[in-house]
Design a protein around this nucleic acid. Structure first.
Lengths: 246, 246
DNA sequence: CGGAGGGTTGAGATTCATCAACGCGTGTGG
DNA sequence: CCACACGCGTTGATGAATCTCAACCCTCCG
């Protein structure tokens, strides 16, 4: 298995965090790297899971599709993210599709390797637990969002997360995916998403193409909740009066 | 730790499945059993997770609550179910509330015990992975349901799951929770839920109090998907023409 | 008897999805 | 070089569907 030259320079994926060198090598030696074209389907609902996918470059989405052809986006993955770990342990055919959203370079770790390694290296098991737990947390947010939040709140909360991810100091940040995709992820139509973006101008958030510009760094505080506040670098300061932690 | 007399007669909770006797004892010796009144709040959003809860008797719900007071039910737990395992591994304050929906007998396994035991017994780690993965699967279903399914389809799918859970042969099954609670879980108001139940009569599903009576055992097949079909005892037979596996 | 909680029913308001059209940038082929 | 089609995003008009609010019935219980 030949890893890309810059592999060690990138931020280490959570999957490998804290593993001993020998443990890491044992995994990598049994893995395969593969390139996919944009739009390529890697897994379909009903397939038996064969491996974990680790995104080295590009982006994937995981979705569910119902009979009527409607598609619900579960996750959108970028470099360093993994998918199918959870499915592996469900013991059932895959409930999700995995599809490339761009050309993508993927590391595939076979099912059997993962299941064996979990029993041999507890650190690896804990990494998997953390990853699946995080997925579950995000899923809970999505459920909450669609149950009780208005479109404006949904978009605002999503923006807040992206704002924090991309550096708290910047007043600008970028949408990492096409608007259609984000709209679906947030459970609304592209039209509704577009109209919602216009509403956001009124609260000081301009949208130019795929760049979001905030008037000030508190513009998104309305949308904060206790989960997210703990990620906020200013949450212990008095600056943000709206902060739910105060 | 004194377990209830009938502990070993009940179906073993997934948490303990396949554990050696010594491993199980190590866990139980460090756990506490406790009774709670109906309505009692065990964990609030923002609390630091202190233990895993295993329901021995009664029922709990896990929820998220937003500033407006709206409540989204994430899960409803009965005997044998656990919660907070995932939260323990998120490494953040709890994103969810846990509340008793009835008088409840709960086994509490402290945070530190779980985290230590995971490193010592891989079988326990795998159990946790399976449990969290299953939660995640259910969460994905909930997301799909709210994204692309009509109320009728949501209720139908929920009924189908309960029907299978409570025995495929019976044409009757019971709602395990109050209608209000089920309605919220399915992301709709009690009113809409009530009206939807009336619609279901047209497709051969009568509702009397909290008992659901199906005209025939295929009445719910409309609502099946590939995930659920694999749980169906008849899925490889030709009986159900609507089965998505055919 | 009276009150509380759960469930149902009805009428009205709101909101979002749908459908259709358009603008714009890009790529392609004559 | 231009005509054209295509994908993406936006805008407007329309309609369907669900939430909201209100009243009501029922059972349980003090």
């Amino acid at each position: 298995m030949q890893l890309p030259a810059n592999f060690n320079e990138q931020k280490k994926p959570q999957l490998f965090e804290g593993l001993s060198e020998s443990s890491l090598q044992a995994l990598l030696q049994r893995s395969v790297m593969q390139d996919y074209d944009s739009g390529r389907v890697l897994v379909q609902q009903g397939d038996n899971p064969e491996c974990i996918f680790l995104v080295l470059d590009g982006s994937l989405k995981t979705t569910r599709i119902n009979e009527d052809g409607g598609e619900a986006i579960i996750r959108m993955l970028e470099a360093g993210d993994t998918c199918m770990e959870a499915v592996l342990f469900m013991g059932i055919p895959s409930p999700i599709n995995v599809q490339a959203m761009s050309v993508a370079k993927i590391l595939k770790i076979p099912d059997s390797v993962v299941k064996k390694h979990v029993l041999e290296d507890p650190a690896f098991a804990v990494n998997l637990l953390r990853i699946v737990s995080r997925h579950y947390k995000n899923a809970m947010h999505q459920i909450e969002a669609m149950n009780i939040k208005s479109p404006l709140q949904r978009v605002g909360y999503y923006f807040l997360l992206k704002h924090i991810e991309q550096g708290h100091e910047n007043l600008d940040f970028k949408l990492p995916f096409k608007k259609q995709v984000v709209a679906n992820y947030l459970g609304m139509t592209p039209e509704t998403f577009s109209r919602t973006l216009k509403q956001m101008k009124d609260i000081g958030i301009k949208v130019e193409e795929d760049t979001i510009r905030m008037r000030d760094s508190f513009a998104l505080c309305h949308f904060c909740d206790s989960d997210t506040a703990s990620l906020c670098s200013r949450h212990d300061q008095a600056e943000c009066e709206k902060c739910p932690l105060h």
